[in-house]
Design a protein around this nucleic acid. Structure first.
Lengths: 173, 173
DNA sequence: CACTGGTTTCAGTATTTACTGAAAATTCGG
DNA sequence: CCGAATTTTCAGTAAATACTGAAACCAGTG
């Protein structure tokens, strides 16, 4: 069916575009998110040149963002025997993607935040002025909360998909 | 103790700076995050001019970001009787902050994402090609997952702080 | 060991996003 | 209404970020 091929292409472009836009709201570069979307919806690994063509971007841009995705652990490099160039393939399992993103964001955002909060809490611990006490309390509460969040995220990430979903279902029931 | 006053100021500046940096990693403007940090660690509501001075920013910038914080629901406007100008005060309760941010991010990011995923899943539902099937499956899985996340976030946001913490503790235990 | 196909780097440029400062609008007491 | 105190808007500019394209690099091959 010819119509389907066309339609699929346009749906896919829609997805890629929107996923890219979403990415930039989160602190992720638009291109990186687009490449991710492209690879997630590809039935086979793609070469750098295919990515460049599909998204109409430069080689440098494609290269940098592909490598960044590999660094995040969202994309794998695939080598075909007899082929010299590299191909790229995205992780497609949603739970796995979630865990990967959670781990990476934790490392890049939560940990630094925690260290600031600890520093501020420790530094103000034995102040006696009203202002000092209030500051200490605020920092301590933030620290406690962020720490809890961080531990929860570890715990959830270590669950099997099925178990997590089951738990979620119970919670929602 | 004079030393404490100095130290507090520098700790606070540290916090404000780092919170601002964090903010820009998330898709929030640096200034907005800094103002939020400033107000969170203030023992009293501040005027626009105080915010401008403290952070060395322009009136326009201060104004825009204060209003944005109010729109998010993270900051309240306070009027003092006999005073014409407005003062601003941040929500300090960590759980409340969390809920507010979660709700807002859901509205701005999750909902739009869901609508794309639905559109893509619906549009490809009855395609028969291998590519079409794969695309549909991927969209459906993403949709399902995002939907679950969204419901969970609603559920958690509707809990009392104490209850949520208790549940977290059990989960971590 | 030079050639080919491919990857990596990066200076320069374009795009996006955030900020300034001053003018315009609004509010309110007199 | 008038004018002083404030808030709001926004055109212009600055800063941050992302992208290009070409050159340098690297790894197999004949």
């Amino acid at each position: 069916m010819k119509a389907d091929t066309e339609k699929l292409k346009s749906l896919r472009d829609d997805f890629i575009g929107q996923w890219g836009a979403m990415g930039s709201q989160w602190g992720i570069s638009r291109t990186m998110a687009q490449i991710h979307a492209l690879l997630m919806t590809s039935t086979r690994p793609l070469s750098t040149d295919e990515v460049m063509d599909e998204l109409a971007i430069s080689r440098g841009n494609a290269h940098t963002n592909l490598k960044e995705l590999v660094a995040w652990g969202l994309v794998r490099i695939v080598v075909r025997k007899g082929e010299r160039r590299e191909f790229f393939e995205a992780e497609k399992d949603v739970w796995q993607i979630f865990i990967t993103v959670a781990r990476e964001r934790k490392r890049r955002e939560i940990e630094p935040a925690l260290s600031v909060l600890r520093r501020c809490a420790d530094g103000s611990e034995d102040m006696t002025s009203e202002e000092g006490r209030a500051f200490f309390e605020q920092m301590r509460q933030l620290e406690e909360f962020v720490e809890l969040t961080s531990k929860m995220s570890d715990r959830i990430a270590s669950m099997k998909h099925g178990f997590a979903v089951q738990m979620a279902a119970k919670l929602l029931g």
